Amino acid sequence: MISLPSPQQLRYLLSLADHGHFGRAASACAVTQSTLSAGIIALERQLDAALLERGISKRPVFTPLGLEVVERARQALAALEAVAETVASARDPLSGPLRLGVIPTIGPFLLPRLMPALREAFPRLRLWLREDQTERLVAQLESGRLDLLLLALPCACGEAETLPIAPDPFLAALPAGHRLVARDRVPVGALAAERLLLLEDGHCLRAHAMDACGLPQGTVPAEEGFAATSLHTLVQMVASGLGVTLVPRLAVDGGVMAGTSVAVRPLERADSTEAPPGRTLALAWRARSPRAAEFRDLAPAIAAAVRGE
């Protein structure tokens, strides 16, 4: 009979892979460094395989086999956690810890009103939040480090299951005195003659804004000389007269324009029968997650928070 690694041994191995440092990995596991090292050595002996290179480097260096074992270990622990989650979900839905990832163009504007609503509706639910860009959040979801994502579609969500929650139309953000401020609505085509300010690469809102303006992905406007790291910075750049941008209504309702002279106007397409440019707020979770029904139950509360109810 094959001798199987223990979940604790696998946790030590994953912690070392994730932190890249024996001391930090041990702290994350709430054990001493010697305990963690001994656990990994015991795992290597049990498997009769070298998972780490032993040399002068103080940082852990995984062998090719060790890297493969790390990924297998991640899958194995995720499967074990799914067993426990299935039972817990059936016994007491929407309770206990939930690791939620949220993108930066949603979190600051929705969470202040969403969190109190969730605490009231689901008092036994304990939310742990992680804010990051879409690509990194999806990777953490796939690896089992996050349970649920709150993001914007369209996006490259891998094999995750997605549930649209609410539309989030774009508004044109214009400097005070700009010629387009006099219009009730701004034609999307009118933005072609403007310097369009965008978030830096990696933010899905950048791709959404470029798509709304008909710009090929992977390109930037010829006049663009800057890229912002946050919507607040982007709005300040518009206020300084550096150009125009697109902002989601969620961010405007969440106060991103507070204290500025920036004007916002709805957008309209050349074909008035088409919906105005925007994005769709959505939840995403691992396909076949045992908590999928719980996640769907969260959607109405999140949609209500988006509407400000």
Rank of each mutant, 00 (worst) to 15 (best):
A227G: 08
H178G: 09
L65K: 05
T35V: 04
A17N: 01
P104Y: 08
G177F: 09
R54W: 11
R72F: 01
E81K: 08
P167D: 11
P154L: 07
A28K: 06
G144K: 03
R206F: 07
L100F: 07
V102I: 14
A293L: 03
L16K: 03
V188G: 00
S272V: 14
P290M: 09
S3M: 14
V256W: 02
L94I: 02
A30P: 12
A166T: 09
V238S: 00
E223D: 15
A88E: 14
A78M: 12
R265N: 10
A156W: 11
I302G: 00
R185P: 00
Y12M: 06
R291D: 00
R185L: 10
P112L: 04
A207V: 07
L234S: 02
T229G: 15
P154G: 13
T35Q: 08
R126C: 06
P93V: 03
A42Q: 12
R136A: 15
T229I: 13
P104K: 05
A292G: 05
R279G: 05
L250H: 03
T105L: 05
E223Q: 15
R59W: 04
S272I: 10
P169E: 12
L43M: 15
A284D: 12
F226Y: 08
F170V: 07
M1F: 11
A222L: 15
E274F: 10
S34C: 02
A305P: 01
T86K: 03
A305W: 05
C157G: 12
A79E: 12
R185M: 12
L127I: 13
C213Q: 08
P169L: 10
R145D: 10
P175V: 07
V181W: 09
A117K: 05
A192Y: 08
E135H: 15
R72S: 11
A305Y: 01
T229S: 15
R296E: 09
L267A: 02
G255M: 04
L148E: 00
V244W: 06
S261I: 09
L52G: 02
M210P: 00
E53S: 10
A152R: 02
R286M: 11
P116S: 10
G241Q: 05
R91Y: 06
R279E: 14
L65C: 08
G214V: 08
L137K: 04
A284Q: 07
M237L: 13
G96P: 10
C213L: 11
L242F: 07
T32Y: 04
E294V: 09
V61C: 08
E44N: 05
M237Q: 09
P108R: 12
G308R: 12
V188F: 06
L100N: 02
T86L: 04
F109R: 00
E81M: 13
S6E: 13
L127S: 01
A25D: 03
P277L: 10
C213R: 01
A90I: 01
E194H: 03
A117G: 05
L80P: 01
A49P: 05
A117M: 13
G189D: 14
G107Y: 05
P266M: 02
A270W: 02
R24Q: 13
V306R: 04
L267Q: 02
V264L: 07
V102P: 00
W285P: 00
R185N: 03
V31T: 10
I302T: 03
R126K: 14
D184L: 07
